[in-house]
Design a binder for these strands. Structure first.
Lengths: 185, 185
DNA sequence: GGGTAGTGATTGATCAATAAATAAATTAAA
DNA sequence: TTTAATTTATTTATTGATCAATCACTACCC
């Protein structure tokens, strides 16, 4: 049922040292997205990696820190994706949408993770998501301004709102909730 | 610290029978909004009502059912608020926004509850929030159509997107995230 | 023989949920 | 109209599970 993720073939005698931290994060994203932060157990994450449950705590101080790390990773991927975006003013929004849509296809679990995090009341997690939202907003604004857009503030806000509705639509499994703009130009 | 909510003054000999179910729901909204569904304990809810913890389970089958009830209550309040909305096509959106903004002021905890619920992976809760979203979307659409609006589908979608961003802005305590439309017409 | 990578066994808290008992109120009987 | 019976409201005490986190140990490599 739960497939291990660390299926690494050592080439002859050369031992491939996989990064345990990365492996754990990779598994954690999946487990957290499926069961939610609180229902997910460190044992499930460990099982998916193929290590013992206590070993998680050799690498992450506690469960919260593990979740924070997965969340930060998710936000970093978003900002990294947006960093390269560049287009003339009349195309920049569609370009940004395109980039984000691809991200949602390739890393749906990270999107789910973020929607989860919106509702978590633990302060450490709230801080991460606040910072993440700030970073994305600022970055998108910078992109829109650079493209020479008319009303960047309003456009950024609209972009964030529709992006959020996209996330929620996906997390809830309600495709009918997706923003209607996106249907056709 | 945690103030009891059932401070009811019986008028002379006339005994005012307060509805325990309602009292519990009232307390639950507060406790859930503050700590989140999973961290909130039934003991905290009970303490706030001024009853014993096990008594909660005489009225609600389990914790999940209690949460579902609070969530349904929150959604009902939203739909009830929108039910009466009516205005000409060029004012209907602002009217809907006005109504929703008042709701956010009077019942912020119910909004927080909904944002929380977006990320919860338990199937019973997901169903409630899916239905709630469907109900609101449909109702807003009906209002917009009745007002004789040009592109109701797109407008409803935009309304939902900005509404969600509002909710998130509130839940995260990030006023700067609020939709920029709302600043001025 | 010390460092790195890892495991098995265990514990200590936390809570939802149950069960058994009690008090209070309401109805019925005498 | 007092009292007995019965139902309703509520509590105390307890349990049973679940898990994050710790500790003490092993195996391997340089």
């Amino acid at each position: 049922m739960t497939k291990e993720l660390n299926s690494v073939q050592p080439k002859s005698d050369e031992v491939i040292v996989v990064n345990r931290r990365e492996q754990i994060l990779e598994a954690a994203v999946i487990v957290f997205a499926e069961h939610g932060y609180f229902r997910a157990t460190t044992a499930q994450v460990a099982e998916k990696v193929g290590i013992s449950q206590p070993y998680i705590f050799k690498i992450f101080k506690n469960k919260e820190e593990l979740f924070v790390a997965t969340l930060e990773r998710a936000f970093e991927r978003i900002t990294r994706s947006f960093k390269g975006v560049n287009a003339p003013a009349d195309q920049i929004v569609w370009e940004a949408i395109r980039v984000y849509e691809r991200l949602m296809e390739t890393h749906p679990n990270e999107i789910i993770l973020q929607v989860q995090a919106l509702g978590i009341r633990d302060e450490a997690i709230r801080q991460v998501i606040r910072q993440g939202m700030r970073d994305i907003t600022e970055l998108v604004k910078q992109i829109f301004v650079t493209a020479g857009m008319e009303h960047p503030e309003v456009e950024v806000s609209t972009f964030m709102a529709n992006g959020m509705l996209c996330n929620i639509s996906m997390t809830l499994g309600m495709p009918e909730l997706k923003p209607k703009h996106l249907d056709r130009g």
